[in-house]
Every structure is written in structure tokens, then in C-alpha cells.
Write a protein that binds this DNA or RNA. Structure first.
Length: 602
RNA sequence: GCCGACGUAGCUCAGUUGGCAGAGCACCCGCCUUGUAAGCGGGAUGUCAUGGGUUCAACUCCCAUCGUCGGCUCCA
């Protein structure tokens, strides 16, 4: 459901009304004037309300609040709208500082009670149900009885900064979910359970892809042999694709003197998210949080003619960023990451083609991975951020943003624009994707950099023999290994296509008599470059098949007397399809073709 | 970093008012010699996250630290 439809739906009113009823129930828990209320909008699947309370809420409180909400619902109190003047509003909420701030915002105009910009006349209104009055533009259901008492549930308590600013006071937020029917609620809770099963953190453990260890440190994943197999398949794809698009690979160190990051301009902006420096021989050395400046130095290591451009330097570089502890999230936000990085140096004339070529690389990858739902987002600067978040050069911002728009429009690639989301050195196209369980991620990025080439004094000689400054593109179509594998685990629910699979094939002997043969086949497959294992454990064949199924191994080779006698295998795929009497050489050839083709089907 | 919850075997989890640390799966051993999603029997498995404290006695109560999770903030 798109936003506009949602905002006009009954469900939206139900959730909005449930938020009011919840606030009412919370207010009743405290002495008059003790509980301060902030805002409480509907959100996807539910609603929340923010409170400033004399004590912290506990999970037990949620049960009591739910109970009280059901009592309010039973009263069938009508929701009544009253349009008031700013003065009346201030009088009503004299002891509610957050509401007063909102009213002042409404009075000043241009901003609604959630801080979003609004157009047209600002009308201040109340919604009243029973004893409870809230500053609200509505709409709501007719009366509290329209909320199904069996179709809502309070879910969690969280801290949330007033107006989303960490300099402000942190409020207590209660999240709830509300639906029209009990069945809808049950379905939603079931979906949440299902999402847990498809969570990359669980799948990563079950499928033995990666692990974290407290002694190693938070946000520092360890890739197992199986995980590394997946990563290497991705790297092969990247190297092959980039080769086809004219990239050259480079390699750079993990450490550098601070001078480099001072020149790049990163240090003043990002020192907080870098690991602290190591002092050595009178210099401060930093572990690299990005690869860019190294590539710039490689560009600068020799002269360039316009005839050499574009120069495209690629590297799967490992970077380290000190993400704040609360920001870490499985493989999706980590402190060590290997980026599918590359920098393209080109003339302004070449910009459009280069930019679109990067977009085309995305599209190639999305096709291979079967990623159908994505949104390209053009992130632009904001004037208020100039000189702070953004390089202070408005002319270049406006110019490069238009260059990106033109490139996207001319290529016919749809995108949305979002202001105040750019990198500090230029506008960018981020690609948002959604995993199978609905989680949104920025996967790929394609960034224009008009600032750094000048800082690094990068040059090329044009056809008139004059020195020019190139443009730079930063791009990471496959994101980082960490984020991509995390995403793909959820995207495929662990059922990797054969070419990406951590284990292509598992050989299963039927009895002890076939162990040697099974081992021989697995060794031969491994030597031929496949990820092959033999299950030689003390268990029945059926149990071994079950184990392989649970690991989502695409192919199982079951071998017994028959197969040993005639040099064949019984091929079973993870969809349960079975082919008996396949010559081993034939299977090997089929697997080789399957892996090379990157075919999604078994 | 902030608010809150949680941390017991490799995994998933139980553990009563403070009184001998448990189950299933996995693992190891044995039996069976098996034909496409769990054969049977036996066995080993713990710094109850870490460090303090209270107590005759702490997995259990208190404090601190570390880590994870749900959010907020952030994501070059």
C-alpha cells in the first residue's frame, strides 16, 4: 500500500486512534500533570506514542496499559474534533511543554505536529475522546469502540529523542501494532516469527557462514570456510564484470599517516568514527576507514593525458570504521568490512557515460541476484549544510546534481530525490533494496566527487595541452561483502543458487561399505574446484539427507552398491528431485556448467 | 553513545520461595548394513558471560563490566 492510500485508510485511523487511547491509559497511571505526552503517529503495521514520565516503564506496565486500553475501548467514547485558536490551544496544554512547542510550530506555520512541512492554511485542532484531549489533525475512527480489543498488542518500550535529535531529552516510546481483525493481528505476529527464521544472523549461524567472538570484538565478523566460499564467488563475479567494463585492479595498505586523511578532508569530518591513531616514528597512523585517498594517490603517481581517461581503479578493500556500539547490527552494520570499491577519474564530457555505466553494472547484478524491488535515490545537498556537512561550493553542488539528473533522465532510469542526504563531497545515487523479510538497506552507491580531485591536485592534460582537474566517481555496486552476504542470506532465505552456494554438493554413502567411494568422489570434486563434502558420520543415509537438506545443499550424491559397480551417482537436489544412474563424469560436467552460468535454477 | 530487555552445554531452551546443573538435537562409542528428510542402545559435555558483594549456602539477590537483542541517534 502506498503512503497516500494508507493515510486515507480505515487501518490508519484505527492505529492513530489506538495511539490516543494508549496515551490516555498511560496518563491515567500517573498523578495529574506528571505525565508529559509528545507525539503518537500511526506507522507501518502499528503506532507509537512518546512520553516523558516520572519513572521508567517496564514490560509489566505494558500489560496493565493494554488492559486499561480495552476498558476505554469498551466505553465507546466518541472522538470529537474541535478547531481552536492558538491561544485556546496553549491554555489547554499549559502543563504540556511538548505540546506547547508543537503549537508554536503550528502557529509559526509551515510545520505540522510531527515536524513535517505542510502546505496551505494551518488549522489547530483537538481530538477529544472521553477525558482525553490531544492536539491532533486527525482523522480518527468515530468512537473508541471501533478499535477491535482483540486485534492490537503493545510490543516494546524504547528510548527516542524528542524530535529525533540526540541533543534533546530522551523520551520513552511505546510501540504497538493494531489491525482490523484478530486474524490480521495473528497473521502479522506469525510474519514476525517467520522473519526471525529468515534473519541473516540466524541463517548465518545455521548455515555456518560467519561468526562473532567476544574476544575478537564487536562488529568484527569471522568468515568461516563456507562463508568464504560465498564471498569468493561474489568476488569472481565482480572481477569478471569490472574487467568487462574496463576496470583495473589495485591494492593498497590498511594503514596510513594522518596526513593523507587530512588532505582528503575526511579526518575533521569523521574522526569520531575512525579507530584512534597509532603513533609511530613521530607520525600518527590511522587504520583506513575508506580506500579513496589511496586510489587518488595511485592516480597521481603518474601523468595523465585526456587520452588515458577514464581511469577506473578497483579494489575489494578492507576498511575499519568505529561504528557506535548501538549501531552494530549483525552483518549489516559492522566495524570491519570489505568494500566492492572503485574510483573512476574522467573528464566532464565523459561523466554521463561513466555514471550510467555504473548504473548498468547495478542492473546486471540485480538481474543475476533476482533483485526486483529496488529504488534509486538521488541524494542532494542542503543549503543549510554548506560548509558544515557539505563542501562549501554551492555552484558545484547545483551543477553536479543537475549532471546526475540529466544522466539518469537520458538513460531512462527512474529515481527519487532526497535533499540533505548527500556525501560531503558530492551528490550520489543510493540504491535501496528490501530483503525478503521487508528490511530496507542501502546496498549500492554511486557518488560524484567534485571536491577531492582539487584537494589532491589531480590533473590531466587536455587536447590543448592545458592542465585540467578530472571528476571523480566513487562506486560500490556490491556494497561490502558483509552487507551483501547478509542481504543475500535473507533474500534467498539461505537457499543460495548453486554458483553462490557455500557447499555445492555433498556425497552420502548408503552403508559403511560405500564410505571409501564417497570420500573418493568428494575429494575428486573438491580437487576440481567445487565445494564438495562427504558425510562419513555414523548415521543412516536418511538422516544424512535430512542434515544436507537443512543446510540447503543444492546437490546430494547418494552412493551405494549400484553406483560403485557402474561408476555412477544418484543425484538428489534440495527440491527433492532425484536422478539415478548418472555417470559421475556427467554430473561433474553438469555442475561445472551450472556454477559457471550463475543460473538461478537447480 | 542513549533508553529498555536479555546472557545456562556446539545449537534450541527448561531450571520452583536462594539448598547436589537439566532436556532435545548435535558430538563420541557400539549394534544394525540400511536406497532418498530423523534406526536402536550407551557415553562424554558447563568458569551458569566476566569481576566484585550479600549469605551458612548464589545460576537464582545486589553492584560494576563485557556482549547480544528491540528501538533512538548515526551510517564518508
Amino acid at each position: 500500500m502506498c503512503n497516500e492510500q494508507y493515510e486515507e485508510s480505515k487501518l490508519y485511523q484505527i492505529r492513530h486512534s489506538a495511539a490516543h487511547i494508549m496515551a490516555q491509559a498511560v496518563m491515567e497511571m500517573f498523578e495529574p500533570g506528571e505525565a508529559k505526552i509528545a507525539i503518537g503517529p500511526p506507522i507501518r503495521d502499528g503506532f507509537y506514542y512518546d512520553f516523558d514520565l516520572p519513572r521508567n516503564l517496564t514490560p509489566d506496565d505494558l500489560k496493565a496499559i493494554e488492559k486499561r486500553m480495552r476498558q476505554i475501548i469498551a466505553k465507546k467514547e466518541p472522538f470529537v474534533k474541535t478547531v481552536v485558536s492558538a491561544e485556546e490551544a496553549k491554555e489547554q496544554f499549559a502543563d504540556q511543554p511538548y505540546k506547547l512547542e508543537l503549537i508554536e510550530g503550528l502557529e509559526a506555520g509551515g510545520v505540522d505536529e510531527y515536524g513535517d512541512e505542510i502546505q496551505g492554511e494551518t488549522e489547530i485542532s483537538f481530538y477529544t475522546d472521553g477525558e482525553f484531549v490531544d492536539l491532533c489533525r486527525g482523522p480518527h475512527v468515530e468512537n473508541t469502540g471501533e478499535i477491535n480489543p482483540a486485534a492490537f498488542k503493545l510490543q516494546s518500550i524504547a528510548g527516542a529523542y524528542w524530535r529525533g535529535d540526540e541533543k534533546n531529552k530522551q523520551l520513552q516510546r511505546i510501540y504497538g501494532t493494531a489491525w482490523e481483525t484478530k486474524e490480521d493481528l495473528k497473521a502479522h505476529l506469525k510474519f514476525l516469527e517467520e522473519a526471525k527464521r529468515r534473519d541473516h544472523r540466524k541463517l548465518g549461524k545455521d548455515l555456518d557462514i560467519f561468526t562473532f567472538d567476544e574476544e575478537v570484538g564487536p562488529g568484527l565478523p569471522l568468515w568461516t570456510a563456507r562463508g568464504t566460499a560465498v564471498i569468493e564467488a561474489i568476488e569472481n563475479l565482480a572481477y569478471e564484470t569490472e574487467r568487462n567494463h574496463g576496470y583495473r585492479n589495485v591494492r593498497t595498505p590498511h594503514l596510513t599517516k594522518e596526513d593523507l586523511f587530512l588532505r582528503s578532508g575526511h579526518l575533521p569530518y569523521y574522526a569520531d568514527s575512525m579507530y584512534p591513531p597509532m603513533e609511530m616514528d613521530g607520525s600518527n597512523y590511522y587504520i583506513k576507514p575508506m580506500n579513496c585517498p589511496f586510489h587518488h594517490k595511485i592516480y597521481n603517481s603518474k601523468q595523465h593525458s585526456y587520452r588515458d581517461l577514464p581511469v577506473r581503479l578497483g579494489e575489494y578493500g578492507t576498511c575499519y570504521r568505529y561504528e557506535k556500539s548501538g549501531e552494530l547490527f549483525g552483518l549489516m552494520r559492522v566495524r570491519s568490512m570489505q568494500m566492492n570499491d572503485a574510483h573512476i577519474y574522467c573528464t566532464p564530457d565523459q561523466f554521463e557515460q561513466e555514471f550510467i555505466d555504473v548504473i548498468n553494472i547495478y542492473l546486471e547484478y540485480f538481474k543475476i541476484f533476482g533483485i526486483e524491488k529496488y529504488v534509486m535515490r538521488l541524494s542532494t545537498h542542503s543549503d543549510k549544510g554548506l560548509g558544515k556537512k557539505y563542501v562549501d561550493n554551492k555552484e558545484m553542488w547545483v551543477k553536479t546534481e543537475q549532471m546526475v539528473r540529466d544522466a539518469m533522465d537520458n538513460a531512462g532510469v527512474p529515481y527519487v530525490e532526497r535533499a540533505d542526504e548527500a556525501a560531503f563531497y558530492g551528490p550520489k545515487i543510493d540504491v535501496q533494496v528490501w530483503s525478503a523479510i521487508g528490511r530496507e538497506f542501502t546496498l549500492a552507491t554511486n557518488q560524484v566527487d567534485f571536491a577531492v580531485p582539487e584537494r589532491f591536485e589531480m590533473k590531466y592534460t587536455d587536447e590543448h595541452g592545458e592542465e585540467q582537474i578530472p571528476l571523480c566517481l566513487h562506486r560500490a555496486p556490491l556494497s561490502t561483502h558483509e552487507r551483501l552476504v547478509g542481504f543475500l542470506l535473507e533474500h534467498y532465505a539461505g537457499k543460495f543458487p548453486v554458483w553462490l552456494s557455500p557447499e555445492h554438493v555433498r556425497v552420502i554413502p548408503i552403508t559403511d561399505a560405500h564410505i571409501e567411494y564417497a570420500k573418493k568422489l568428494a575429494d575428486e570434486l573438491y580437487a576440481a574446484g567445487f565445494h564438495a563434502e562427504a558425510d562419513l558420520g555414523n548415521a543412516r543415509m536418511n538422516a544424512k539427507i535430512r542434515a544436507a537438506q537443512k543446510m540447503k545443499v543444492p546437490y546430494m550424491l547418494v552412493v551405494g552398491d549400484q553406483e560403485m559397480a557402474d561408476g555412477t551417482v544418484s543425484v538428489r537436489n534440495r527440491d527433492g528431485e532425484q536422478m539415478n544412474g548418472v555417470a559421475f563424469a556427467e554430473f561433474k560436467a553438469m555442475l561445472a556448467e551450472k556454477v559457471a552460468s550463475r543460473d538461478a535454477e537447480l
